[in-house]
C-alpha cells in the first residue's frame, strides 16, 4: 500500500490503472447475498458486471487490459465493452471511490 499514493477524482483513460481506495471496500454481503462497496456514509450495490470489472482493478492492470480480458471472455465488440467499462469506472471515480496507482514520487 505504501508505495501507492492516492490521487482522487481521476479521469479514467485506457492507460489508467484503477484501484479502489482504502475507504471503498468491495465485499460480499452474506446476509443479503450480494456484493457491496462500503464507503463513508454510503453502501453502494454494484451490479454483476460492475463487480466483475472491479475485481480486475488491482492497480496493476490498465483499463485497456481489463477491456481486453472482458472482450475475450464475452466475445463482444471491443467498442461496446470499452464504452461500458469506461463509463462505469468514471462514474465511480466521480463519486470519489476510485483512485489510481502510481509510483510514489516523493
Amino acid at each position: 500500500m505504501s508505495e501507492l499514493r492516492s490521487n482522487r477524482r481521476i479521469s479514467v483513460s485506457e492507460d489508467s490503472k484503477p484501484v479502489l481506495p482504502r475507504h471503498a471496500r468491495l465485499k460480499f454481503d452474506e446476509t443479503r447475498q450480494r456484493w457491496v462497496i462500503l464507503a463513508p456514509e454510503r453502501v453502494l450495490a454494484p451490479d454483476d458486471i460492475a463487480v466483475e470489472i472491479l475485481q480486475l482493478c488491482d492497480g496493476e492492470r490498465s483499463v485497456a487490459d481489463i477491456i481486453d480480458l472482458l472482450v475475450a471472455k464475452y466475445a463482444a465488440p471491443r467498442d461496446d465493452i470499452g464504452t461500458d467499462v469506461m463509463a462505469m469506472l468514471q462514474d465511480l471515480a466521480d463519486k470519489g471511490f476510485l483512485t489510481q496507482a502510481r509510483e510514489k514520487t516523493s
Partner: peptide, 13 residues
C-alpha cells in the same frame, strides 16, 4: 447512510 440512485450499475442501497 444510504440514498437511492436508481437505474445505475452502482445503485446505492
Amino acid at each position: 447512510p444510504v440514498f437511492t440512485d436508481p437505474a445505475d450499475s452502482l445503485a446505492i442501497m
